[in-house]
């Protein structure tokens, strides 16, 4: 199914956030929001994803 990751459509076979993170090989310091709502890491395995869900994956960057 197609989900929108950081604004870009992407095909995935994962059915929850834990599977998606593994599929994308996201590592290190990161956090995630599903349809504009923050999802803590402890909830990834329990959070199912659906067609056209919008997922933001963020990491540290410089800031003022």
């Amino acid at each position: 199914m197609i989900v929108i990751i950081n604004g870009e459509p992407r095909d995935t076979i994962a059915n929850n956030l834990a599977g998606l993170v593994m599929e994308l090989k996201i590592e290190g310091a990161f956090a995630l929001a599903l349809n504009e709502n923050f999802v803590p890491k402890s909830q990834y395995a329990n959070t199912t994803i659906q067609e056209n869900d919008r997922i933001e994956i963020v990491a540290p960057m410089q800031g003022g």
């Binding site: 090989k25 310091a29 990161f30």
Partner: peptide, 13 residues
Amino acid sequence: SIRRQNPGDQSGQ
């Protein structure tokens, strides 16, 4: 700050 991290991009780390 934080920004979008695309798969394979490790600059934030």
